[in-house]
């Protein structure tokens, strides 16, 4: 299954994070594609793909300008996203206390509302830490993949029970 990495950025940091994350996934032999949300249409969303969103926050807790058309399309067209799975990584700056990371949260709420299922926790990157954003995203995604495996394992248990013969 291909992993589709989509980023929404104002300053370029989310793009850097997306590229590093994609490179690390590619190094693990996984097929992956990176796209800017500004050039991605909601018509391209596939139910059986795994999406990774990396999204910053701008202005008064808004999505970055490059991600606004995508978000607006989701809100207006309201496609049924049941079956779609995604992970979410938010970039922000705790200097903006009241709106920290709101961009990713808004996008996450919208995707969930439309039936998509998030895997793992929302990743968070705080620019005020000066940590390399790429490394932070890569570490987060490794955790998400572990969660995904755990979920699959639990599902298998749910289906087959704990019968050692299963």
């Amino acid at each position: 299954m291909k992993i589709q990495v989509l980023f929404g950025t104002e300053s370029g940091n989310a793009e850097v994070a997306a590229e590093d994350l994609a490179q690390s996934v590619r190094n693990d032999g996984q097929e992956v594609e990176v796209q800017d949300l500004s050039s991605f249409s909601i018509a391209e969303l596939q139910h059986d793909s795994m999406y990774v969103f990396l999204c910053s926050t701008y202005g008064e807790g808004d999505l970055p300008n490059t991600a606004l058309p995508f978000y607006a399309d989701l809100s207006v067209v309201r496609p049924d996203l049941s079956g779609m799975r995604y992970a979410m990584f938010g970039l922000g700056d705790t200097f903006y206390t009241e709106t920290y990371g709101h961009g990713a949260t808004k996008l996450d709420d919208k995707l969930t509302e439309l039936g998509a299922q998030r895997v793992g926790k929302i990743g968070r990157y705080d620019a005020s830490t000066w940590e390399p954003v790429g490394e932070c995203a890569v570490a987060w995604f490794a955790g998400v993949l572990e969660d995904v495996s755990a979920v699959r394992w639990l599902q298998r248990i749910g289906q087959h029970g704990l019968d050692p013969a299963a």
Binding site: S11, G12, N13, V16, D93, T94, F95, D126, A127, S128, T129, W130, P132, V133
Partner: peptide, 14 residues
Amino acid sequence: DHQSTKSIQSQFAR
């Protein structure tokens, strides 16, 4: 004193 704004340097350093 706005070090988080200055942190964009790490993107440019790449």
